Computed example of a mutant assay.
Amino acid sequence: MHPHPDVDHVLLTEQQIHDRLDELGAQIAADYAEEPPILVGVLKGAVMVMADLARRIDLKVEMDWMAVSSYGSGTKSSGVVRILKDLGTDISGRDVLIVEDIIDSGLTLKWLLSNLRSRGPRSVEVCTLLRKPDAARVEIDVRYVGFDIPPEFVIGYGLDYAEAYRNLPYVGVLKRSVYEG
């Protein structure tokens, strides 16, 4: 398969992603065997990860969604977070597993963790497909990490640039000329 013309190079193939989700799903199923968690996907980026991960967790899990915004159409986090869509489920007393596509600065996730913990769940953990350790601005304990990646602008598998490229089946590095030109 040839990458999209706006992709500089493929960072993670579709097969690499699916193999790692198999491992994460098995680990989550083992860790939550006694009490299945509610999966909370963070829209829009986590749609692909959430759908594929949920199918790999051999438990009766519930799913809900939140949409929070701190990006706009740029390539850097603004640090300002607002809820665009809140949970429809009461999470008090429940085990919650936040499913993210990527953790970049960590600012949005830190805010989200604080917000969800204030609602009285038994536990709140994080599963992310991608993490950029070199871009972190705050320390966050992430229980499940698919891949640590370099601080490059990535698209595909749910990740976008100005709402485009989410449908690519791999994770690729966006050519600088696309967002600097």
Rank of each mutant, 00 (worst) to 15 (best):
C127G: 04
P5I: 08
R94C: 08
Q16E: 15
G120M: 15
D134I: 07
G45A: 01
S73Y: 14
V99N: 02
V10R: 01
H2G: 14
S92K: 14
R94N: 04
I38L: 10
L113G: 09
V42Q: 02
V61W: 12
E139T: 00
K85H: 11
G72F: 06
S118Y: 12
K175Q: 06
G88A: 13
A164K: 09
D19H: 09
H18P: 03
M63G: 11
G93I: 12
D6C: 05
R131S: 11
E125N: 04
L107N: 01
S123L: 13
E152H: 12
Q15D: 12
R117I: 11
D95R: 12
P3K: 13
G88W: 00
I38R: 03
K175N: 06
D86T: 02
L43A: 07
E163C: 10
D64C: 09
L53S: 07
V47H: 00
I149W: 00
L109F: 02
G74K: 05
L21N: 02
F153D: 03
L39P: 00
Y32Q: 05
D160T: 13
H2Q: 15
I38C: 04
G172V: 00
M50L: 12
V142S: 04
D58E: 11
L11N: 08
R82Q: 08
L159I: 04
D64S: 09
S69Y: 11
L39Q: 00
I140V: 15
G120Y: 13
R82E: 10
E180I: 03
W111F: 07
S105L: 04
L87T: 06
L130H: 05
W111T: 04
P150T: 14
V61I: 15
L39T: 05
G172P: 00
A33I: 09
A67D: 03
V49D: 05
S70F: 10
V178R: 01
V47P: 03
L24S: 01
V42H: 02
P133V: 06
A54E: 00
G88T: 14
H18E: 12
Y179C: 10
N115W: 12
L109P: 00
E34T: 07
D52Q: 00
M63A: 13
L159H: 03
Y165Q: 10
R131M: 07
R176W: 06
G120N: 15
V145M: 07
G172K: 04
